[in-house]
Design a protein around this nucleic acid. Sequence first.
DNA 1: CTGTTAGCGCGTTCAG
DNA 2: CTGAACGCGCTAACAG
Lengths: 367, 367
Amino acid sequence: MAHTDPDPHVSSTGVAVEVTSRAQPNTRRPKIDGRRHSVAQPVTIRSVADEAGVSIATVSRVMSGQTNVSRSRAALVREVAGRLGYTPNPVAQGLKSGSFRTVAVVVPNLSNPFFYDIIRGIGLKAQAARYQMVVLDSNEDPDKEVTICRDVLRYSDGLLLISPRMSAQDLQQLAAEDKPVVMVNRAEVGVGIPSLCVDNSAAMLEIYGHLSGLGHRKVVYLAGPSASWQNDMRQAAGIQAQAFGLEVKVVPAGGTIATGYKAVGRALELNPTAIVCFNDLSAFGALAGLKEHGIMVPDDISLTGFDDIEFSAYAAPSLTTARNPKRELGQLSWTIIEQLMRGEKLLPTPMLTAELIVRGSTAPVRR
Amino acid sequence: MAHTDPDPHVSSTGVAVEVTSRAQPNTRRPKIDGRRHSVAQPVTIRSVADEAGVSIATVSRVMSGQTNVSRSRAALVREVAGRLGYTPNPVAQGLKSGSFRTVAVVVPNLSNPFFYDIIRGIGLKAQAARYQMVVLDSNEDPDKEVTICRDVLRYSDGLLLISPRMSAQDLQQLAAEDKPVVMVNRAEVGVGIPSLCVDNSAAMLEIYGHLSGLGHRKVVYLAGPSASWQNDMRQAAGIQAQAFGLEVKVVPAGGTIATGYKAVGRALELNPTAIVCFNDLSAFGALAGLKEHGIMVPDDISLTGFDDIEFSAYAAPSLTTARNPKRELGQLSWTIIEQLMRGEKLLPTPMLTAELIVRGSTAPVRR
DNA sequence: CTGTTAGCGCGTTCAG
DNA sequence: CTGAACGCGCTAACAG
């Protein structure tokens, strides 16, 4: 078995050019390497300027691609910069300019593929716009969420909140910061944060309509996280579903596989013919739970999810669900925050829709 | 689940006081709000100093919790800081001190729960150490991975590479930076980056031994991403498996549900009695593919995964797999990078092991 | 075209 | 105990 010896910090290929003491024109001395880990001393704009025999301003101009530098000097600077491996320090740039070409995305739970698909949508557009995207996970903790947001906002140009769990009041405080904030999957009136949402009610009603058409009457809704706005919407739709002649009872669960699995017992006590889950994850858990109870899906009980994450199509049986427009959510939210960052007026953003996807987990109710 | 929230972080409810123009003692003017988005002007250390009638040095001392400030002044400063909602700008702090209390984690693919579980392990420890963790996704692109790493290293104190796809040479360049870098799930000799690995070979051999014990002889290995070190290890184990009398043929696939699903056809052409997958995700896809081909698992064909991500236990049938010590991987890698960041000598890190988990997807071969 | 200079917000000597 | 002054690395006037 190859043992992985943490190597004793082998040297750099990076030809750490010893800047000998010909740095006379400047009083600056290459600082004694007091750093703990370091081998190579950081190469700054001064290193390049000194080495090339020009001023730091010239280096700055060259690096930022300005044209008002003589071709020869520009070439020289570029050569030296390349040789020394110089890259402008984005922290210093950020401190100076106030911009970091970075946006932060905060999600409650990175373990849900649904969130990841949104993030990917954002990341794609961000990359194209030469922005860096960093992802932060609040671990479903509203307080931590607030802290994270405030911290990260200091070194990013904008903040994307995906399904934020924090209070409306905390949201309002965030909105008062001097950086653009955009919210996805949550609407909060009077808070002053533009938000991009999917019409959860409509989608849920489609699900209920589908179930009703299959003859179902007694339904259990397996609820999601209590702090989730999406759950509020989806749960509320159960009441309107009475219009379809459905009786929807709520069983608290959560938004993960494990919570869906565990909630099955309580759901069964209510003798439903169909179980409607907060999301695909909990539906997947419920599926496993039902199987353990010896209940066949969809023969004995119909089951639905929400989001249409990838593996829902591959589950056995495949999951009837509502397709959340994840990619669009991501891309559109980027568009919004980009407008904000550029100081443009916001185009009115539409409410997106989730499409019902009928698969194998729902069937006509058995008499 | 009792949530462990070590962070009291009592936040002042941040009443955003309008600082009127009594900032006379200082020439600085609250800069005209030329910002695009802004409502409130940023409150800096000077705002607090001026408002409290002390020097910025005093404010700095108070904020950093030093004791050499008179109790009365300290109290005053704290009061003013709270009232103004002042928080030291971490960017400026970072530029000054060279530390950001931030570590960056780069993963090839956030959509794999396996990676997320590692990240969570890191995040837990990081939070406890009052570090912030940011996550970056390279999207399986080696070049992008390099760029991301270099960028993010400028504003973080350390870099955790999870299953990096970049070349050994690029890794070496990263190692030459003056910040600690730690690698997880990849070993690369002579590169100078400490790495934390799981003994993939041993685990694979356990899987093969298990299969052999069930009477299997003809096995197909559904390979993972070609740039993956873990795949190299797991694939190579197929050769040693001949010692068990197994014949292991390799079919290229990938590390996702979709790739596993698509590869089933080619795997079946080889008439195996068992299919060993690179990871749980591809196994899950293969499971669905086999079902479509009318093949029962485990009756007709046995199937195994690797990692033991959460839903493997809930799949139908549940997946025989090797339990990757995800949490430990995360926590241990934090321990390593923390030592590095503190400049301590590295304790030798052990190679972790993955435990065989036998579930419903494997069975004795049918005669 | 080019160099000098003044900060961005903060931590940190160094005098008092 | 306290404040003035310098500089982290960089950009943007402002002279020349």
